[in-house]
Design a binder for these strands. Structure first.
Length: 480
RNA sequence: GCCCCCAUCGUCCAGAGGCCUAGGACGCCGCCCUUUCAAGGCGGAAACGGGGAUUCGAAUUCCCCUGGGGGCACCA
């Protein structure tokens, strides 16, 4: 099996393309075949190097490797279409000479006028084929004398293209609905249909796995391959990803660029696991599984035919599962840089130690890596800023001042500043003041961390250190 | 307008004629645990779009309708 992922660098890699890439990768790895990465960059107006890099970075981040193609090379020469233009020209000329394609001199204005006409009359809006009857030699002469011409494929008429789609089963298109489409533009550049199909043939691609948006273009690609004398590959058309409103996933639904998920604190493993579930299932009612397990069980023919809605909630849940699963060192390696970015400076040794003390507790309660700075910030700043809602909710209660006062006095006397002694001391305080934990401890939490939501209190105080903890308690006393 | 694809809880998937009083996961709602928040445990609400046909028997097969999606460029 040889499959390919062929993004066009006209935008950032978005989650829909990432899923297509993943399914290609899974199919290939399951079959022990090769994955080719090429760049369909024939659109030089919209393409850019920045997008090209973004696609590659995105695939690498997801851990989807390829065996051949851009960046890694391979036996088929350049894998960027912009560098294969002469090849496309050669094939186009061969097709024309063989009579499979013909020159067309209709102007864009004429074409769109006729298209509107046909649409209004309820006929298929495709090109009507009028230049097809022009004598080939006469046509070449007109072109050679400078008249603008495009090259069109002469679709067999009457006719029909039927193929067996791996996910959809048999699909048939009557050629009455397939126009004699353009192969070469009047400026001599190939269209997507031509370039892409030639590449698939030249690179010996056996399986084309792509989005359903290309389903109705498939007869065109099959017909080109056939005209080239090649055997068309097998096709698998994946349903599209939708936004929460059931419409095709797009910028309207927020940032759909893959890099936004990376920046948003998602783990690539979680992202891959979640996306694999969109249109496929692992079996056994399991939804969390490793990459190896996924590869072992993946089968294109099990892929769902209907479109799936991308559910950020479930992705976040899964991300939390993966975060909790991270080895501690790995967790630190992934979150400490975020803390430093948040602080705008490197962590000092003492801060690093403090963070590592409560990091296990933070790890348990995160869904996104980006929450680490929020949870640990109280350890790393001199002055906490009090969350207004938390202050209002907790500090305005009648017992708050007593609790903070009593806690301050008692904590000052704690000999060993560690979780257990702190807890012991504070529990005594609760008993003495006859306060329950909610009333007596929440004020301390807000005082120490600035928020009513934080890692567990005793550990937080221990990690904060005696001086800083007491300073914050006293500071609160002044405000109460 | 024309062509193609699709149709099970709010969402993602199980279900390939009787095992279905339709199963799991996310989310949601209770309860438990608990110093907050999470995590975890237990329980709950929640779906086969409609109509025909085939069959002793349809979520599962066929047809129609409806609904949703995609495509119809000298874009990819």
């Amino acid at each position: 099996m040889r499959a390919r992922f062929a993004p066009s660098p006209t935008g950032y890699l978005h989650v829909g393309s990432a899923r297509t890439a993943l399914f290609n990768w899974l199919a290939v790895r399951n079959a022990g075949g090769e994955l080719v990465l090429r760049s369909d960059d024939t659109d030089r107006e919209r393409g850019s190097e920045e997008y090209y890099r973004d696609v590659i970075d995105g695939l690498r981040w997801l851990g989807l490797d390829w065996d051949e193609g851009i960046e890694v090379g391979g036996p088929h020469g350049s894998y960027r279409q912009s560098e294969r233009l002469t090849r496309y020209g050669e094939v186009a000329e061969e097709l024309r000479k063989a009579g499979s394609a013909y020159l067309c001199f209709c102007t864009p204005d004429e074409l769109s006028a006729r298209r509107d006409e046909a649409r209004a009359a309820g006929r298929p809006p495709g090109y009507d084929g009028r230049c097809r009857t022009i004598e080939p030699t006469a046509a070449s002469e007109r072109r050679d004398s400078g008249e603008a011409a495009v090259l069109r494929l002469a679709i067999p008429r009457p006719g029909e293209t039927v193929f067996e789609d791996i996910v959809r089963g048999e699909v048939a298109f009557d050629h009455a609905n397939v126009e004699d489409f353009v192969l070469m533009r009047s400026n001599g550049s190939p269209t997507y249909h031509l370039a892409s199909t030639i590449d698939d043939v030249d690179f010996a691609i056996t399986h084309v796995i792509r989005g359903e948006d290309l389903l109705s273009s498939t007869p065109k690609h099959i017909l080109i391959a056939l005209a080239m004398g090649a055997e068309p590959p097998q096709y698998a058309h994946l349903s599209l990803l939708m936004g929460p409103d059931g419409k095709k996933l797009s910028k309207r639904h927020g940032d759909t660029a893959l890099h936004a998920y990376r920046a948003g604190g998602f783990l690539p493993e979680a992202f891959v696991n979640y996306v694999a579930l969109l249109g496929w299932n692992f079996g056994d009612d399991e939804s969390v599984f490793t990459r190896d397990e996924m590869v072992a069980r993946f089968d294109l023919s099990d892929v769902q035919k209907n479109p799936a809605i991308f559910d950020n909630e479930k992705l976040e849940w899964m991300n939390g599962v993966y975060i909790r699963d991270l080895a501690f060192d790995d967790f630190l390696a992934r979150t400490e840089p975020l803390l430093e970015a948040d602080l705008g400076r490197p962590l000092e040794d003492a801060e690093r130690d403090a963070y590592r003390e409560i990091a296990p507790l933070i790890q348990e309660r995160m869904r996104l890596l980006t929450e680490a700075p929020e949870q640990a910030r109280f350890l790393l700043v001199d002055e906490v800023s009090y969350d207004p809602a938390s202050w209002e909710k907790v500090m305005t209660k009648p017992d708050s001042r007593r609790a903070v006062e009593a806690a301050t006095t008692r904590l000052e006397a704690v000999e060993e500043w560690a979780t257990d002694p702190i807890e012991g001391t504070l529990r005594e305080m609760l008993a003495e003041l006859q306060l329950n934990a909610r009333k007596g401890l929440q004020p301390l939490r807000v005082a120490a961390t600035g928020s009513s939501v934080s890692p567990p209190l005793f550990e937080s105080l221990a990690a904060l250190g005696r001086e800083a903890s007491l300073k914050r308690l006293r500071g609160v006393l002044e405000r109460l």
